[in-house]
């Protein structure tokens, strides 16, 4: 008959293997390997100015990736993040340009709008029972349509300082506070994931929705919260996007869902839910920014970055799959 394994033996078999560390450190390891390659090919990559640029552009993706980590951990997906960024952005810009509302107030209003756009996604999924892929594909197109209706024909620039300082201000004229904001979002996101019921229940419903319901968890509520948080963070990322260039254009955020989802998956969050890696998403977003920057530094045409990103995604997901199989 079946052999009985004492519990200790089962555990011993799983003593932290090399694979385990690759899993935890994977995206950070990839950053190091990529950096070594760049050190050989283009030492300019390591200039402090360039490093700051990388993290500056990464900060937008880092913030969005934290939100997407919760969405995906809850066994969901949000394709509309780029459109949420653009729509909350255009409305904030309109407040600054075409109303008497003090520009500083455009910020909280914009964040509220982003939260609302996300909540609408959540309600469509929960109340109308649409698959998330379809629901957010529809709002991706719909939100973008509104942006184009409002601001399709022109771009806006020269915004009031109070409005753009979050995205633009640099400490000592060097270090963008947007980077600090992104790191703050990661830290708060990590604490929420590890130490709040919200994080725990998101992981539970992503791992096994039925079991979560049986434990008395209101999964619909947490599903909506995940989308709402995603919308809020998309609006926050929008502030940085607009501030960085002191401009708004209706194409902001196009294809962004690909980069954001890729950053999360590279970071080790399980694509089908249940296991989230907030710091992994941080590293994933940084890696994506490095790859994009590397393509520029090497003076390759920008479309090479698509190929490079594809390679990074395939290698990292393949590594996780191989590791999962061995266990």
């Amino acid at each position: 008959m079946e052999e009985q394994h004492p519990a200790s033996e089962i555990v011993a078999k799983r003593e932290k293997s090399l694979g385990y560390y690759v899993g935890v450190m994977g995206p950070f390891l990839a950053i190091i390997i990529f950096s070594i390659i760049m050190a050989v090919l283009a030492p300019r990559f390591f200039l402090p100015q360039n490093m700051i640029n990388i993290f500056y552009s990464a900060s937008i993706f880092i913030i969005m990736a934290v939100g997407m980590t919760f969405v995906i951990t809850g066994a969901g997906i949000d394709l509309s993040v780029g459109s949420q960024l653009a729509l909350s952005g255009v409305l904030m810009c309109f407040i600054c340009k075409f109303t008497n509302i003090p520009p500083i107030l455009a910020i909280p209003i914009g964040l509220a709008i982003g939260t609302l756009l996300g909540t609408i996604n959540g309600l469509i999924v929960v109340k109308l029972r649409l698959p998330e892929f379809i629901a957010t594909l529809a709002t991706m197109i719909g939100y973008r349509g509104i942006v184009l209706i409002l601001a399709g024909g022109f771009s806006m620039t020269r915004f009031p300082t109070e409005f753009i300082f979050i995205g633009r201000y640099r400490l000592f004229d060097v270090f963008p506070i947007a980077i600090l904001l992104a790191i703050l979002v990661v830290v708060v996101g990590y604490i929420m994931y590890r130490y709040s019921k919200y994080g725990r229940y998101t992981a539970a419903m992503g791992g096994d929705k039925e079991a979560a319901v049986l434990a008395g968890i209101n999964v619909d509520k947490y599903k909506i919260l995940n989308f709402a948080l995603m919308g809020f963070l998309a609006a926050l990322a929008s502030l940085i996007t607009i501030g960085r260039l002191d401009a708004f254009h209706a194409t902001y955020g196009v294809y962004m869902e690909i980069d954001v989802i890729a950053a999360v998956i590279i970071g080790g969050t399980a694509l089908y839910g249940g296991v989230g890696k907030i710091w992994g998403s941080f590293a994933g977003a940084v890696l994506m920014a490095m790859v994009t920057n590397g393509v520029t530094i090497l003076r390759l045409p920008y479309f090479y970055q698509y190929v490079a990103v594809a390679v990074v995604i395939i290698i990292s997901v393949a590594l996780y799959t191989l590791r999962a199989k061995r266990e």
């Binding site: 590890r194 725990r200 539970a204 791992g207 079991a211």
Partner: peptide
């Protein structure tokens, strides 16, 4: 299927839906 969430660990499952918390700086955390 036992009603366990397989991706969570033993304590997380044992306390699922009834987590113990504590106050840190006035905020309740798990």
């Amino acid at each position: 299927n036992l009603g366990l969430v397989e991706t969570l660990n033993v304590p997380e499952n044992l306390f699922l839906g009834k987590e113990l918390d504590k106050k840190v700086l006035g905020i309740s955390v798990l």
